[in-house]
């Protein structure tokens, strides 16, 4: 199971812009590299990342082989209400990781 780390403030003021930083463990094998025997190493990357705030999508990203290993993605959102923010990474070979964080809006 790949590890995922999400960083965001736990308590914020209403209407504040919050920065969310996410990191997930993944080799992001490009599919362009070869072994010493000349065989192409098959591609194995994370294809999509989705972030939802209380079930509503706020950010989505499509990843390509040019994203570095252990993909970092940082973005912002407006704190509207207390609740749960969920993060989902999906990719090749059935890769799927979900992480969630709670946020309290004052």
């Amino acid at each position: 199971m790949a590890r995922a780390v999400v960083k965001l403030p736990s308590t914020v003021k209403r209407g504040e812009i919050v920065e969310i930083r996410t990191l997930v463990q993944h080799a992001m094998e490009t599919g362009f590299r070869r072994t010493q025997l000349g065989e192409v190493i098959p591609r194995n990357i994370i294809r999509t990342f989705v972030c939802a705030y209380n079930g509503k999508e706020i950010f989505r990203a499509g990843l390509h082989p040019a994203i570095a290993a252990n993909p970092l993605l940082a973005f912002t959102t407006v704190a509207t209400e207390s609740g749960t923010i969920t993060f989902t990474w999906t990719g090749d070979n059935g890769f799927s990781v979900t992480e969630s964080a709670t946020i309290t809006v004052e």
Partner: peptide, 19 residues
Amino acid sequence: LSAYFNARAGRARVVTRIR
């Protein structure tokens, strides 16, 4: 990379690491 936003983002900004 393709990053998709909506009005709830507050700021149009994305940070990542590339090859």
